[in-house]
Structures are given as C-alpha cells and as structure tokens.
Amino acid sequence: MRPLRLALVPGEPAGVGPELCVRLAQRPRDHDLVAYADPGTLRAAAAALALPLRLAPADSGARAPGTLALQPVANAAPPAFGRPDPRNAAAVIGALRQAAQDCLDGRCDGLVTGPVHKAAINEGGIPYTGTTELLAEQAGCEVVMMLANDTLRVALATTHLPLRAVADAITAGGLARTLRIVEAALRRDFAIRAPTIAVLGLNPHAGEAGHLGREEIETIEPVLARLRAEGLRLVGPLPADTAFLPAKLRGFDAVLAMYHDQGLPVLKFSGFERAVNLTLGLPYPRVAVDHGTALELAGKGLADPGSLFAAAETCARIARARRG
C-alpha cells in the first residue's frame, strides 16, 4: 500500500492561504502532502515570511521540513498581497477540481483546503456559492457541512441561505438525509460506536409548543421519531439558546443546527483557532480552515496557522481511519 497522501489547495492566492501552506510545510509529518498551486505564489509567500521552501515533484514523497511536493496550477496574473484578482478565479477553481478528482480517482486520500474569495471567483465569471457545494456536485453525492474544534462538533441542516429562505429549505426528506449522513460520519470517521446527536429547533424555544412556529411539530419532530425507530440516538428538537450549555453538551457527540448562524457563532467562540470545516458524505475526507482569506493580513506574517494545522491533522486522521 502506498503512503498516505493528502492534497493541499491554498485557495485565494492574494490571501493568507499560500503563507499558511508555507508554514504547514515547515512541520514534520508522517504522510505525503501535495500542494495544488502556483509555484511563484508559494515562493512569494515564503519570501514574505522569510521561511525556506523547496518545491518537489508531486510524486516525490518529499517530507523534509521546508519541502512541499507540488502539482503546478498556474495563475493567470501574479497576485498582489491583499488584492484578489478575478483573472485568477479559474486557477483557484481548477486547483480545487483537480485535487478533488485525484481524491476521487484514488491518487490522494484526502483534501485539505484553504480559504477562497467568493466575490473574486464570481467576478471572474465562474458561478460559485461555496467549495462544499462544488465538491458535492463534482462527486455526485449529498453532503453535510460540519464544523468542529477540540470540544464541539456542529453540523448544519442548511448552509449558505438567506435567513428568509431557511424555513422552506428544511424538509422532512432533507432533514432525514442530513441526520443519516452525520450519524454515519461520526461512526466511520470519528470511531463513535453509538453517536448521540442533539437536534436544534428552528424557532425560539423550539417553537414553544407551536406558539412560536410549527416547523418543530410538523417537520422536525416526526423525522426524529422515525429515525429513532431505526436506531439513531437523537435528542430534540432543543431550544438553541440553552442546548450549548456545557452540562448538556457533555451528553452529545454532535449538534445539528438548522441554519448557519444558529450554531457556528457558538463553535467559533468556543475555539476559533483550532476550528475546522468538514464536508461529510464525500467519498474522501475533506477538511478546510474555518476562516476567510484575511486579506488585510496577507504577506505580513501575522496570520494564525492553527486552523490549517488542525485541518491537516484531522484529514490525515480520518484518511487513516477510512483505510482501516
């Protein structure tokens, strides 16, 4: 069996992603790491940080600190720190697609991704809502977004939607599918034999018995009852304002929030520097940083690499678990 190999995509070339990858390359590792990126961009980031960087062929298996195996993906224009250029949108998306395809084809065992700049990609003429959605479409499967740190895992029933669209997007079929994906991932990727998932309500006080909304009564509760009959360990629907109390969290392996800003602020407050973004349901593990491009920090050596370090560690751990 060949050594474990992870694909690494820095993301927006004008942001902090390339320099975080350079910092990651300085760390000892027991797996192969292949960057899908523009070599000049990585070298510029290394120079700005005054760190060594030797780029090796993609199949070299180079692991020495300061060395990074590279699958070149050329930018259309030289990036300037802090100034996204829509001309490079095709390279950003191309790197993601190429790395993901290598995971689908078995050449890589997992995908680690840095932050992208959505506006620059769309301004470059590429319709884009998020990497989670892009990878799901490419793989042809249903996925779930989960963010996690050392103490908390939060999955999302809906992702990047306007708030007024959330209620209509929560359907019985979609909610059941999401919970099955989360439960399967907790078993397979986190080695939790009988996971317990807390499910939040949509409305304040989980609808207050129908007085503050009926989504809990008409949609969420029937789905939970049906899945419990299948053997899933589900608690809820719970009021979101008290579900994250430490005493309650100790009984849960993950929390399913109904929408983006219901659960993620709590997770980020509880440990932003080590938080990562996982795409559950893909045929391969994908783990991303839980922060943006931080354009104002690019090239200054001030960006905290903790999230990328955690993403790489998490991806390697899950990839090994899937290998058996």
Results as ranks from 00 to 15, higher is better:
A62T: 05
L212S: 08
L238K: 06
Q138F: 04
A90N: 09
L20R: 12
F252S: 12
L212W: 07
D32F: 13
A46H: 07
P86T: 08
A225E: 14
A298I: 07
I220W: 05
R322A: 01
P79M: 10
L51T: 11
K268H: 06
G40T: 05
A7W: 00
L156W: 01
G94Y: 09
L200W: 02
T314I: 09
H31W: 14
V144I: 07
G15L: 01
V223K: 00
K118L: 02
S307Q: 06
A77C: 14
A229C: 06
A80K: 14
E183T: 15
R43V: 13
G213T: 09
D59Q: 14
M146H: 08
G106C: 02
P285S: 13
G251Y: 10
D241F: 05
P84S: 07
F81N: 13
A91F: 10
L175C: 03
L245P: 02
V223H: 00
L163N: 01
R274G: 10
L282P: 01
L224K: 05
G299W: 10
G11W: 00
N203I: 01
N203E: 07
L280V: 06
R187K: 15
D102T: 10
E142L: 14
T171S: 13
D102H: 15
A136S: 11
R164F: 06
E133I: 01
K300V: 05
L227H: 06
P195K: 11
E19N: 05
A58N: 12
G263D: 03
P265M: 11
L249M: 11
I181V: 15
G40L: 12
A288D: 13
L161A: 04
H260R: 05
A47F: 05
V199D: 04
A240W: 00
A95C: 10
A80L: 14
A185D: 12
V144N: 03
A184L: 12
A319Q: 04
I197M: 09
G301F: 10
A77G: 11
R320M: 10
A99T: 01
Y259V: 01
T196R: 15
M146S: 05
L6C: 04
I197S: 09
S270P: 00
D189K: 08
V116M: 11
H211S: 14
E296Y: 12
